[in-house]
Simulated assay, not measured.
Amino acid sequence: MKNLRNLSLVLGLVLTLGACTNSQKSANKEVNILYPNWAEGIAFTHLAQAALESNGYETELTNLEPGLIYGELSKENSKGDVFLDAWLPNTHQAYWEDYGDKLEKLGESFSDGTTGLVVPSYVTINSIEELNAHKAQFDGEIIGIGSGAGIHANTLKAIEEYGLDFEQITSSGPAMVASLEKAISDNKWIVVTGWKPHFKWSGNDLKYLADPKGVYPKDVCAIISRRGFAEDMPEVAHFFKNFNLNEEQLYTLMAAIRSDGEEAGAKKWYESNKELVDGWFK
């Protein structure tokens, strides 16, 4: 009787450990990607989703403002794993100063990020210093995006540094693009906060205004993760360390997403570039 009882306890322990192991394996197969409502961030994220799911992983995508993304990933028990659109070392400098010691850099999704004030090429000025002289033609407005974006803070700095008699209009990435394209269709002057990479450059004839005071820096779109992610999921971390697109590749990916939707467009682009993307796992 005693032996049977001991056997029962051993079997119960084995089953419990087996269940825990299976649960851990299941958990370690799910990747939670946090992303902002920015065109390139949406593209990076959905491409990663398509590749990971094709290679046997489950994914969960969570759309948040950038400050919340950094804050969540810095938590000891973060619900997120990775963020593919961290503009470092400059545009998101303040976020990195607050949270960077609790995060890890894995790689670069895009290595030549630029930001600044953007106008249609038919606008006859070429520098931020010329804006005040043409305030009426721009209605005294700079069309911006969300207040949590680093470019929003840099534009407030530009207004101060250049003494601009302009107001930055806080909106969103899609709203900024809609305003830009409507102005172009009406052949009107407009100035927006812009960055590369972004699909608006492939669909419109645009230019940056020169920034002689250097308010708008160059960055990379870095891939960052919660601490311990690389140890928990080394194969996926290796994938993200190799994940990198050039401008032409990214714009064709963005075009597919605009044409077919976020998930379907990214999956279609992945299938057409499977050798490239799956090579990042190796």
Rank of each mutant, 00 (worst) to 15 (best):
Ala48Tyr: 05
Gly261Glu: 09
Phe239Ala: 07
Thr155Met: 06
Thr62Asp: 13
Gly173Ile: 06
Lys213Val: 14
Glu167Ser: 09
Ala86Met: 01
Glu167Trp: 12
Ser202Asp: 13
Leu7Ala: 02
Gly67Ser: 07
Val82Ala: 00
Glu104Ser: 06
Asn90Trp: 15
Ala48Lys: 03
Lys25Met: 11
Val192Ser: 10
Trp96Asp: 08
Leu253Glu: 00
Gly100Lys: 00
Tyr251Gly: 04
Asn55Gln: 05
Val14Gln: 12
Glu141Leu: 15
Thr155Val: 07
Met233Tyr: 15
Lys267Glu: 01
Leu88Gly: 09
Ala158Cys: 11
Asn6Val: 14
Leu156Pro: 15
Asn246Gly: 03
Ala153Pro: 08
Tyr99Gly: 04
Trp195Gly: 10
Glu167Asn: 14
Met233Thr: 11
Lys25Ile: 08
Ala48Pro: 03
Glu130Gly: 05
Phe83Trp: 10
Pro217Asn: 06
Ile151Asn: 11
Ala158Glu: 13
Pro197Thr: 07
His198Asn: 15
Thr115Met: 12
Leu206Lys: 08
Ala136Gln: 10
Asn63Asp: 10
Lys157Met: 09
Tyr162Arg: 14
Ser23Trp: 15
Met1Val: 10
Glu235Asn: 15
Ala256Gln: 08
Lys200Thr: 14
Trp280Phe: 14
Gly265Glu: 04
Lys135Val: 01
Phe229Leu: 07
Trp280Asp: 09
Gly150Asp: 12
Lys282Thr: 07
Arg258Ile: 08
Ala175Cys: 14
Glu108Lys: 11
Ala183Asn: 03
Ala158Leu: 13
Gln93Arg: 11
Glu72Asn: 04
His46Lys: 13
Glu60Tyr: 12
Pro217Thr: 09
Asp211Leu: 05
Glu53Arg: 13
Thr16Glu: 09
Leu131Cys: 00
Asn32Met: 15
Val118Asp: 04
Lys274Glu: 02
Arg258Thr: 14
Arg227Ala: 15
Ser8Lys: 14
His134Trp: 07
Arg227Pro: 11
Ser127Ala: 06
Phe240Glu: 06
Leu4Phe: 09
Tyr270Lys: 00
Leu276Gly: 10
Ala230His: 09
Gly214Met: 05
Thr45Pro: 04
Ala158Lys: 11
Trp96Val: 10
Phe44Cys: 03
Ser111Phe: 04
Glu263Asp: 13
Val118Ala: 10
Glu97Asn: 12
Glu53Ser: 07
Ala210Phe: 01
Gly67His: 02
Phe243Glu: 00
Pro36Cys: 09
Gly203Glu: 10
Phe83Tyr: 14
Ala210Tyr: 05
Val10Gln: 04
Asn77Leu: 13
Leu106Tyr: 00
His92Ala: 01
Ala222Asn: 03
Ser74Pro: 00
Tyr251Asn: 09
Glu76Met: 06
Phe243Val: 01
Glu181Met: 02
Thr155Gln: 05
Asn77Glu: 08
Pro89Gln: 01
Leu11Pro: 00
Trp269Thr: 01
Leu15Pro: 11
Ile223Arg: 00
Leu73Lys: 03
Asp112Arg: 12
Ala43Met: 06
Lys267Asn: 00
Ala237Cys: 07
His92Asp: 01
Gly194Phe: 12
Val191Thr: 06
Tyr208His: 06
Lys102Ala: 03
Thr252Cys: 05
Leu61Tyr: 01
Asn244Lys: 03
Trp269Cys: 02
Tyr35Gln: 03
Lys268Met: 00
Phe281Trp: 05
Tyr99Asp: 04
Glu129Asp: 09
Asn273Thr: 02
Val236Trp: 05
Gly56Thr: 04
Thr114Trp: 08
Leu11Asp: 01
Glu235Ile: 12
Gly100Val: 03
Lys241Cys: 07
Trp201Gln: 14
